[in-house]
């Protein structure tokens, strides 16, 4: 249950916002650290550096509490199952929403419900299980209301890729099937554009 296995990306989406995409099996929630490795979900909050861990098992998401944590009012002694719509409360003041908006995907979305945030503005965090959907429907992981078509982002062979019905181009090159998203890639299509950054 170490955050080091998690790869983090930033998606800077024009007209939509900034989203963090976490790829891995388990994700540590905690405070940022200057000396040590920061938590995967690092919040400027009065919480421990490793306050809780969200882990995906084959069928479910579980939260492991290392410090006082509750889920939708239930105090978590050791671990508990997370369901879509749960509110995770850390150290009584930090509130995060947990949801799996899309029936076709087990990827989860973490929303900030109290005003605790990472050190720069983020609209939300996606915990990537299989793939995540960015598109015009509310049940997509990232709701991009003005987009004409959905873009699927997925992780394959250690790399981030994307696919869409719309004609995509990455850094000006047209994507035929699945496009490879590297650090600094700018994906564009009719009516949409976003940049991917890998976060160290």
């Amino acid at each position: 249950m170490n955050g080091s296995a998690c790869r983090k990306y930033m998606l800077w989406i024009d007209g939509v916002g900034a989203w963090q995409l976490c790829v891995g099996e388990s994700f540590v929630i905690g405070a940022p650290s200057l000396d040590h490795e920061s938590a995967d979900i690092a919040l400027l909050a009065n919480v421990s550096r490793k306050h809780a861990t969200i882990q995906r098992n084959s069928t479910e998401w579980r939260l492991y509490a290392h410090q006082p944590t509750s889920v939708s009012g239930r105090t978590i002694a050791d671990s508990g199952v997370l369901r879509s719509g749960d509110q995770i409360c850390l150290a009584e003041r930090v509130k995060l929403g947990f949801r799996t908006p899309c029936a076709l995907s087990s990827s989860a979305v973490i929303d900030f419900e109290s005003d605790h945030r990472p050190s720069h503005s983020l609209d939300g965090i996606i915990l990537l299980a299989d793939h995540c959907l960015l598109g015009p429907r509310r049940d997509h992981h990232v709701w991009c209301s003005e987009w004409p078509e959905m873009v699927v982002v997925f992780h394959q062979d250690g790399e981030l890729r994307c696919r869409s019905k719309a004609a995509l181009s990455i850094d000006g090159h047209i994507v035929c099937d699945a496009g490879l998203l590297r650090h600094g890639s700018v994906l564009t299509s009719e009516g949409l554009r976003f940049r991917v950054e890998q976060v160290e």
Partner: peptide
Amino acid sequence: FTFAPEARPLDGYTIKRA
């Protein structure tokens, strides 16, 4: 949008997104 991500139209500022 006119400016792409990472553009620096003004010295000292880097555009991240529109």
